[in-house]
C-alpha cells in the first residue's frame, strides 16, 4: 500500500506541533543541507503524530505563501517603515538605495528628469562577496574582486562587467531588456538567472533559467551570436575561440554558497580563484605543479583548511611564507 494517501486526522498533540513548527522554520535556512534532510527524515518517523503535525504546519505555511500579498494588503502597515519591494515598481528610482533619493525628491522631480539614467558602481575586494538588489527586483551576486556598474532606465537595464564574476537573477520585464557587457561581448536577456565570468580576458556565460543571447559587442569584434538555454555554458577564450557545452549550472553558481566546484581544472587556475577569496595568498612553488588537474569541491571556510584539503587531493604540501602559503611537491 502506498503511504502517501494516509493522513493522520487526529489533532496532533502540542509537543508534535511545536516540533513541526521548528522543522518548518529550520528548513527556511538558506544553507539547508543533507544533514538537515537526514535529521528531518528521522524525525518524521520518530513518533506517530509527527507526520500529521508537520503536514498541518506546512499547509498553513503554504497558505501564507500563496496569499502573502493579499494578507499583507489586509494588515496594518508596520509602525516603523522599512523599505520593501512589495509595491509594484514602475521606475528605476524606487527601491533599494534609491528609496532615500525618492523620499527627498519625489514631489519635486519632473517626469522629464526621471528618465535620466542613474549609474551605480559596485566593487568587491579579496574575499568579499556582495548581494545587490536592484530597483527592478533583479538581484546580482558579485564574486570576489569584481567590478560592475548598473544603469537602469525606463527602456533598458544595462550592466557593464569589468574584470570579475557575478550571478544575475533578472526580474522579468519584457519592456526593458537586461544586458551585460563584458569582454567585447553583450549578454542580453529578458528574465532569467545566469552567471557571467570575465577573468584574464576569457569570458564564460552559464545559464540556469530562461534564455540568454550572447553576441559580439560591436561589428568590429569577430565571433558568432549564441542563444543559450538552461544548462548551457558558453566560453569565449581570450583569443576568441568559442566553446559551447552542457553543464550543471548549480556547480557554476556554487561560489555564492561558499563552494568552488571543479572538474579537471589545472591547480594554477584553482589557486588563482582561491587568491581572490582570501587575503592570505597561495603561491605555487613548482610550475609543473600548476598543471595538475583537480576535480572536487572546495569549501571556502579558511585558507589553512583549504590548503589542507588540497594536500589531500593532490601530492602537495604547504609551507608558510610572508604573503601566506607556498605549495610544494610532496
Amino acid at each position: 500500500m502506498t503511504s502517501i494517501a494516509v493522513h493522520d486526522d487526529r489533532t496532533p498533540d502540542d509537543g508534535a506541533m511545536a516540533e513541526a513548527g521548528a522543522w518548518v522554520a529550520r528548513l527556511q535556512r538558506s544553507e539547508v543541507g543533507e544533514a538537515d534532510g537526514l535529521a528531518f527524515e528521522a524525525w518524521l518517523d520518530a513518533a506517530p503524530g509527527n507526520r500529521g503535525a508537520y503536514r498541518r504546519a506546512v499547509a498553513i505555511w503554504q497558505e501564507f505563501e500563496a496569499n502573502a500579498e493579499a494578507v499583507l494588503a489586509e494588515l496594518e502597515p508596520l509602525a516603523q517603515p522599512i523599505p520593501i519591494r512589495r509595491k509594484p515598481v514602475r521606475g528605476w528610482w524606487v527601491g533599494g538605495a534609491g528609496v532615500a533619493l525618492a523620499a527627498g525628491l519625489a514631489v519635486a522631480v519632473a517626469p522629464a528628469l526621471m528618465v535620466q539614467p542613474l549609474t551605480q558602481t559596485f566593487v568587491t575586494g579579496k574575499g568579499q562577496h556582495q548581494h545587490v538588489k536592484l530597483a527592478d527586483g533583479s538581484v546580482i551576486d558579485l564574486n570576489a574582486e569584481t567590478r560592475l556598474s548598473v544603469t537602469l532606465t525606463r527602456g533598458e537595464r544595462k550592466v557593464v562587467l569589468g574584470d570579475g564574476e557575478a550571478i544575475f537573477d533578472v526580474a522579468a520585464d519584457k519592456a526593458r531588456p537586461f544586458t551585460v557587457a563584458a569582454a567585447d561581448h553583450l549578454v542580453r536577456v529578458v528574465g532569467t538567472q545566469f552567471d557571467v565570468r570575465n577573468r584574464q580576458g576569457g569570458l564564460t556565460v552559464t545559464v540556469a533559467r530562461g534564455k540568454v543571447q550572447v553576441r559580439p559587442l560591436t561589428a568590429a569584434v569577430a565571433g558568432r551570436s549564441f542563444l543559450l538555454t538552461p544548462g548551457e555554458r558558453l566560453a569565449v577564450a581570450a583569443g576568441g575561440a568559442e566553446e559551447l557545452k552542457a553543464v550543471d549550472p548549480q556547480e557554476t553558481f556554487s561560489w555564492r554558497a561558499g563552494r568552488l566546484v571543479y572538474r579537471d581544472q589545472p591547480l594554477g587556475e584553482v589557486v588563482a580563484d582561491l587568491n581572490r577569496q582570501f587575503v592570505d595568498q597561495i603561491e605555487i612553488g613548482d610550475p609543473e605543479l600548476a598543471k595538475l588537474p583537480i576535480t572536487g569541491v572546495i569549501v571556502l571556510d579558511d585558507p589553512r583548511a583549504v590548503t589542507q584539503r588540497l594536500s589531500l587531493m593532490l601530492p602537495v604540501r604547504s609551507v608558510p611564507s610572508d604573503r601566506g602559503l607556498v605549495l610544494l611537491r610532496k
Binding site: 538558506s30 543533507e34 534532510g37 527524515e41 526580474a171 554558497a257
Partner: peptide
C-alpha cells in the same frame, strides 16, 4: 538516502527561492 537529501537540498538552495520570487512577482 543522504545523496537524495543532498540533491533535494541543492534544489532548495538555488531553485526554490528564485522560483518563489518570480511567482510572487
Amino acid at each position: 538516502v543522504a545523496l537524495l537529501y543532498r540533491m533535494a537540498a541543492n534544489l532548495l538552495v538555488d531553485q526554490v527561492r528564485s522560483d518563489q520570487r518570480s511567482s510572487r512577482r
